[in-house]
């Protein structure tokens, strides 16, 4: 029984290891469904299908809130002043540097579409508030500019952008 050593695995060790490995694979295979069941179910994913939003009723300077996948989305019709402010920022000063051009669709600079969830701990920021005329999170005081970039406070990242595209000049599809 003690003939084998660690240095020289023999056939019996191989049998033990193989049996143990198969058992481990079986345990992992059983564990996976138990873990995976907590992920979003089929109906939740289906309900997260893309939505279309008509932009015509949104006045210059107005922000509207729509829901997609249970997340609030801000659609901000930015004024010329706000666009200029967003473009004229010294990127080196930003915690999460990103030019305004990467955060809007080319040719539609007045439309800013972003997920209105503070990147700190998930509260909904207030529009048109804070020092930069952008967004202000009332929970822990993060301040975003009109491009939705983090400027002050504990949030680490800029407000996230949802996947969206322009179907026409006045209609977007989110998702």
């Amino acid at each position: 029984m003690t003939s084998s050593t660690a240095a020289e695995p023999n056939r019996r060790d191989f049998l033990y290891i193989a049996t143990g490995a198969v058992g481990a694979v079986g345990a992992a295979a059983v564990a996976w469904p138990l873990i995976s069941q907590m992920n979003p179910d089929a109906s939740t994913i289906a309900a997260g299908a893309p939505i279309e939003v008509d932009l015509t009723p949104i006045a210059d300077g107005q922000v509207i809130k729509v829901f997609w996948r249970g997340k609030p989305i801000f659609i901000n019709h930015r004024t010329a002043k706000q666009i200029k402010e967003a473009q004229d920022v010294n990127l080196a000063l930003l915690p999460d540097p990103q030019p305004d051009s990467e955060r809007v669709k080319k040719g539609h600079e007045q439309w800013q579409v972003l997920i209105a969830i503070c990147t700190h701990l998930g509260c909904i920021p207030l529009a048109h508030q804070g020092e930069y005329d952008g967004y202000f999170c009332p929970c822990h005081g993060s301040v975003y500019d009109t491009s939705g970039r983090i400027r002050q406070g504990p949030a680490p990242l800029n407000l996230a952008l949802p996947p969206y595209e322009f179907l026409s000049d006045t209609k977007i599809k989110i998702g």
Binding site: N39, T44, G70
Partner: peptide, 16 residues
């Protein structure tokens, strides 16, 4: 997302 069981805190979250 796994904790929530959705794309936001919702009914699956409350249930679990």
């Amino acid at each position: 997302t796994w904790l929530w069981g959705g794309f936001a805190v919702g009914n699956p979250t409350l249930n679990r």
